[in-house]
């Protein structure tokens, strides 16, 4: 009896092994039924697997994270450092791009006026102790910079060289309250004195009581003897409001400087200027409004009218 059970067991084992070998043979011979069964199982399981993936998505990487905790931490640290370096490079690149743009603008202006200039970076801005409006540039006497030279940027007048050192120079900005410059209204011969007010706004006082100015007039530097401290024709600012107070001897106006004194990266010192006055040629072009695109639709009427539109029914 026991021997019969043992034989049956052996027989079962042999049958199972032969069946397995049969399955392997069928699969290796490429019988499509086998792959079909596997594909069917996968099709049936895929919805369950989708549910499983959704449920386990928050903890899927938990085991790996636990095992590689130290490595993950060091990788995070390395990535943080790299990210910081990249951010720093990006900031530097943006700064360089802005300076390049400013340099291009100021060289355009100087080229148009045929000024001989030396460009310099602004290395220091403001003087909190003296309350004066100044900047320091990284060009000095070694670069040919001398006191009382005109300093410009891509928008126009910035100021005048006040003090020169061998490798740097201190510039008095046009916005300084003590700054005075003789200006001319573009397109006319009206002249006046523009005074800094400590901000981007200046005050213009016309010298002739017969002259009149209006909002939007452009002011240009009138120029000095031997082009020092001011070369002629440099754009200075634009009239923003006019004071027509009764009884005033001469007309006064508020002027907005073209140059933004709070964001200067690169400026140019005018070393030499041509003999002839550039007149109004350096006036910045007015901003052009962006054209609004229009769409024109052409409709060609059909030659054969529709049956319902002939009015015969």
């Amino acid at each position: 009896m026991a021997r019969g059970g043992e034989n049956r067991g052996r027989l079962l084992l042999i049958i199972l092994i032969i069946t397995s070998l049969f399955l392997i043979t069928l699969d290796l011979r490429g019988v499509s039924v086998i792959s079909g069964v596997r594909n069917g199982t996968q099709s049936a399981l895929s919805p369950v697997q989708s549910v499983g993936a959704t449920i386990l998505s928050p903890v899927r990487n938990f085991f790996v994270d636990v095992v590689y905790l130290g490595r993950t931490r060091s990788e995070m640290e390395a990535l943080r450092t790299e990210n910081g370096e990249l951010k720093s490079q990006l900031r530097e690149q943006r700064s360089i791009d802005a300076q390049l743009k400013q340099l291009q603008g100021v060289l355009d202006l100087a080229g148009k006026a045929q000024f001989k200039v030396v460009s310099a970076r602004v290395i220091s801005q403001g003087a909190t102790t003296s309350f004066t409006q100044t900047i320091t540039i990284d060009a000095g006497s070694r670069n040919g910079v001398k006191p009382n030279m005109t300093v410009i940027n891509s928008y126009g007048l910035i100021g005048v060289v006040k003090t020169v050192y061998s490798n740097s120079a201190l510039i008095a900005l046009a916005s300084d309250p003590s700054f005075r410059i003789g200006v001319r209204v573009a397109g006319t011969q009206q002249i006046g004195i523009l005074s800094g007010q400590g901000t981007r706004k200046g005050v213009l006082q016309l010298l002739d009581n017969q002259s009149t100015i209006k909002v939007g007039d452009i002011l240009l530097a009138r120029g000095s003897v031997n082009n020092q401290p001011f070369v002629p024709g440099v754009p200075v600012g634009e009239v923003t409001s006019v004071d027509n107070a009764a009884g005033a001897v001469t007309q006064t106006a508020d002027v907005r400087f073209f140059a933004n004194f709070s964001s200067m990266g690169v400026v140019s010192v005018v070393l030499d200027a041509p003999e002839e006055d550039p007149r109004d040629s350096l006036i910045p072009p007015k901003p052009q409004p962006t054209p609004i695109p229009t769409v024109t639709v052409f409709v060609t009427p059909s030659q054969s009218p529709s049956p319902n539109s002939n009015g015969t029914d």
Binding site: I17, S20, I24, L28, S35, R38, T41, L45
Partner: peptide
Amino acid sequence: LSQSTAGAFGQWTLVLV
């Protein structure tokens, strides 16, 4: 039957028998 099984069909059957 599992999709993650790369070998021939019946290989795991034989092994686990």
